[in-house]
Design a protein around this nucleic acid. Structure first.
Lengths: 177, 177
DNA sequence: TTCATGGGTTCAGTGAATGAACCCGATCTG
DNA sequence: CAGATCGGGTTCATTCACTGAACCCATGAA
């Protein structure tokens, strides 16, 4: 959200404002969304989001510093890191779910892009990420994402990989390791 | 979120991105939050948010154009308008609630600024705005907001008025009409 | 040797946010 | 009646962040 260097809406005595200090900047929530979808690598974020490289580097760094993502080395030579949602990052799922539902409500004629189901029973999630069948909150790791009828043709490898039904948080496997 | 004039994350086939096109800019969600809290007038937003006047005018206009707020004349001479959340605006409540909870989770040592209760039974709302007692989603109009222990001294008249327990959406009455 | 890949940093240009100043019509105060 | 005040803005220069392109570097492959 393009906060200035003086975060003066920290002055707002409101936890919504606190949240926006961390995830309110442009691109930030989309990076977190992708991370929950299973994207972990710099280059995958890059091609999927079509985000400027400098901005991606800045967002990954600030999200890591905030404890929303964890930077983790997965090979030594050459050194390569991946970014994985922490507990705090996974806790953003309900907010993202609610925002996504609102976005769908915004243009009600559009067909849903993706649907989210409780993996254990297949029921589509309710308004806030809960399972109406089981009546309880569903951890993102137990959410299955399925492509919806509103999706157009996939442009890049990441979009293509995100077309298969898959669990949230499950890492993308584009290249054989 | 400081979108450029070319909204290229419209290209993102995702309703989260669609939502962020509308409410992703800096200040926008805070304006909607205040509107749900009952703030309706230009000047009240101004003193409560400490937002630059030009930005406020821009946000109120774009939110009105998007159908999130409705601009409504409440007196003719001099002409005065107020901004009231529409159905679409009220539908943002779950997302704001989820964000606020996350913001509170972010610094767990802090005392809550405000708590939100189902007005009919007094139960504090669950993680997503539902009432755990009644087991159903609570419309924002049925939510009672109460000041929490984390609130500091009120700086301005709006903050002071928002200190009393009150229903969401109930218009602020600062000046006698 | 040369190229390709992953993961960045640097840089100039642009567009948005900021805060102060100004404007205007209408009402209140003396 | 004059002057101040208020609600609701607009204008403007400055600052700041976003953008996209170019560059860098280490490693591994052809």
């Amino acid at each position: 959200m393009a906060l200035g260097k003086d975060y003066d809406y920290a002055a707002q005595e409101c936890s919504i404002a606190r949240a926006l200090e961390i995830v309110g900047e442009r691109w930030t929530l989309l990076v977190v969304r992708d991370a929950l979808y299973g994207v972990r690598r710099y280059n995958d974020f890059l091609v999927h989001l079509k985000i400027p490289r400098a901005v991606l580097a800045a967002r990954l760094q600030s999200l890591t510093e905030a404890g929303v993502l964890e930077k983790r080395r997965y090979q030594e030579s050459p050194p390569r890191d991946e970014y994985v949602p922490t507990e705090l990052g996974r806790a953003l799922w309900p907010a993202l779910r609610a925002l996504g539902l609102w976005g769908r409500a915004f243009n009600p004629d559009a067909r849903p892009m993706r649907t989210f189901h409780h993996a254990e029973c297949g029921t589509e999630l309710g308004s806030y990420g809960e399972c109406p069948q089981c009546g309880r909150t569903v951890d993102p790791a137990d959410v299955e994402m399925r492509p919806g009828p509103g999706l157009g043709p996939a442009e890049d490898a990441v979009s293509r990989a995100l077309r298969a039904p898959r669990r949230l948080l499950e890492p993308l496997e584009l290249q054989p390791r």
